[in-house]
Design a protein around this nucleic acid. Sequence first.
DNA 1: AATGAATGAGCGTTCATTCAT
DNA 2: GATGAATGAACGCTCATTCAT
Lengths: 244, 244, 244, 244
Amino acid sequence: MSTISPKKQEIIDRESRILELARQMVLSGGYHGLGLDSLATELGVSRGTIYNHFKCKEEIILALLVETMGKRRDMFQRAASYREIPRVRLAAIGVAAELFVRLYPDHFRVEQIVKSDSIWDKTTEERRALVKGCQMQCVGIVAGIVRDGVAQGHVTLPEGTSCESLVFGLWSMTEGAYSIIATSDAVAELGIHEPFPAIRTNIHRMLDGFGWLPLSSEMDFAAAMEKIVEDVFAKEFARLKQPW
Amino acid sequence: MSTISPKKQEIIDRESRILELARQMVLSGGYHGLGLDSLATELGVSRGTIYNHFKCKEEIILALLVETMGKRRDMFQRAASYREIPRVRLAAIGVAAELFVRLYPDHFRVEQIVKSDSIWDKTTEERRALVKGCQMQCVGIVAGIVRDGVAQGHVTLPEGTSCESLVFGLWSMTEGAYSIIATSDAVAELGIHEPFPAIRTNIHRMLDGFGWLPLSSEMDFAAAMEKIVEDVFAKEFARLKQPW
Amino acid sequence: MSTISPKKQEIIDRESRILELARQMVLSGGYHGLGLDSLATELGVSRGTIYNHFKCKEEIILALLVETMGKRRDMFQRAASYREIPRVRLAAIGVAAELFVRLYPDHFRVEQIVKSDSIWDKTTEERRALVKGCQMQCVGIVAGIVRDGVAQGHVTLPEGTSCESLVFGLWSMTEGAYSIIATSDAVAELGIHEPFPAIRTNIHRMLDGFGWLPLSSEMDFAAAMEKIVEDVFAKEFARLKQPW
Amino acid sequence: MSTISPKKQEIIDRESRILELARQMVLSGGYHGLGLDSLATELGVSRGTIYNHFKCKEEIILALLVETMGKRRDMFQRAASYREIPRVRLAAIGVAAELFVRLYPDHFRVEQIVKSDSIWDKTTEERRALVKGCQMQCVGIVAGIVRDGVAQGHVTLPEGTSCESLVFGLWSMTEGAYSIIATSDAVAELGIHEPFPAIRTNIHRMLDGFGWLPLSSEMDFAAAMEKIVEDVFAKEFARLKQPW
DNA sequence: AATGAATGAGCGTTCATTCAT
DNA sequence: GATGAATGAACGCTCATTCAT
């Protein structure tokens, strides 16, 4: 019988604590903000101990990224497995994406910070592949749904427009929107006090623009999305503080 | 007669050269990548000379940002002053935004890097205001066109959707799309080899989704945009290497 | 059983070594002469190691001052506790002061250098208070003895002359004399080859001038001071190379 | 006929202005406080111009010292030429010394700062000789008076005590006292609000202690000194703000 | 496995001095 | 003689990483 000794457990737990704290530090001070010294101090361990878990600073940062992207991929997968017509399943992905940034804003911010900084040179090809793989899974999931939509005749893409092109549009919109929200308070200054409903609307209008059935005018997507929340992300939703 | 001595000229030129080189350094190594020491060395001047131009590292970075944002604002203003119906003027803004990222990809990348890093703490409130002001001008220009569209009855926004909400959508889409392109090669791996036309399509479909007249199906926006390029951005277009 | 490991001991010792060396550097080159870089090099450690002991250059300099002033205060206290008539106790203080500058000439010099340079701006108020406190303790000790002398009727101060005024005189004389000796070789050039006996004489004459009993003519203070040396500062005296 | 052209005059004046300003800078920030850059800026000239007057920073500092010491020597000479009995002439020197520190506190402070810092290494032997010469003249003047006192039988020095020894005592007392006043506010904290009369008293008491005639008890030195002020330093006294 | 002292390359910045104009 | 841009050594300090204990 293999029980985990308390000692072993502590070590495992510490890894999470390291990442948790590291994320806060990156969040508040960027790449600079992550200091191995203060990280160790605040964790109550010695600098050397950190190096038993990660062989260098960049590894920690990479780990943050992997954690974040895995989390999102999991949510995407759950959303994609929702048994409904393609457009609703796409809405489910939208719900997943939104819940992700709203429940884990730190993850999202840190992801952006890390991506913009160039740690990549110092990392191994395989690591990069792992991260990219995660990203591609997310993209692939969405692409699958779009292809379903096309296959089922719910949408007909114009000449020269691929499924991936539409996926790119969805990705752009969410990435851009959440990024703008996270980076500046420009949205509030624009007078948009509830940006998330606005984002949903914009996405749906784009799909409408492609003629994807049923159109927004034909179906109550707001209601549909609330149902998705209930069916798939009840637990996550419960943790959401602000109004949907 | 006041001619500028060669010496003076060299000094003036150097300021550009500093920024130019600094941008490359930030580009390839983030905030870290900009080292005053190597900057000076590669410029062929001494460290002290740099300080005759900028009083600290942050000033240089800020100057990069100001340069970038001013450049874009200028292009937006030129686009906005295009005498056409709102939807075409919106397309003109799209052309401006696209030309900007394509002609000055380094500017765009550095802008993103700088914004995500937290140099802001070390800068004065007024500097931040200046940068934000630039951003708000861009947003304001677009909002003006949207309002024109509404005023002229070319688009009717649904209950609960403001002009700004739509602006936010356009901004999200472009920001996100260019960001994805710049940050990773995911787009190519998605099989999208001409991302820019794809972006244009996605944007137009969104506007179509809002019912903004004339719809894509009713007008050849591709042709309209090429005309915009000719009329407003001929010079810029000439410098564009890749196909439109 | 808790022994101190050799490693730990080395660290503790190093702190003294740092101060020792730092003092020599300040001595020979003033505030400038103390370079963290050369300090580390000459110590045979790295720059970083210095910073494990002192968090900045000023801290080192302050430590020098505290060390010096504490040393003197201790000697003053031992002198003041000598059980004798006030004038002899005053002589004991004189012995302490003289022994201090003669045994630790570097301490004295560095004290002067540091005080004259304006590091004070960069130090905290509390630090300054600590240093001043040390000084005030020394002054207070002397003032106590003077008050004893007055109380016991050994000296009657003229109208308008306070005990403190006399303390000020004693302090001035020693401070000035040692300072002149330390700063230049003017004393030797004046033909004074044994300045210390001269100082003692001058001080005693001043006390005689105030009519403090017993007068120099009535008592052999030279002999009394030798006794003080024996009784209170035997150990220190043994280390004195030059003749008393 | 050789008039001084306005241009030449400006250059001569500037030298004073440089020293004047340099003194203030040293005063408020020690050796560090003197920055050639800000010196030039505040003077309204270029850095290079400073170098037409002084070949390096140390030269400026040395010039400050020479200026100061010359000023004092002049006052000492005037005091020494006072036609009176030795003890009164000695008092005249005291007046000179006191007026000097009180009228030119900046000179005195800077003198101390400069002396404690080690610029000396970087200066030529001849410069040092010049400064030392000035000092020796001052000492010599006082020694002459003491010798007069001995010669005229007003004071009989004990066996083993030279005239110079007494000069050393006078010098110590004044140097120390003014130094303490200038360096800290310890004097005020001691409760001595009029330190200068206290210093005069202490000096006279020392001379009394040596039995120098007439004793303080036999002559009103306060009155004598006021007469000296009138006769020799009337002009200087007029500029003294605080009470004598 | 944990420690934390030691390292040392690297940082941004200052400033006395030089010298072409 | 005056300028001020250019210089570059030197500064105090940080911090990711190593390694003996």
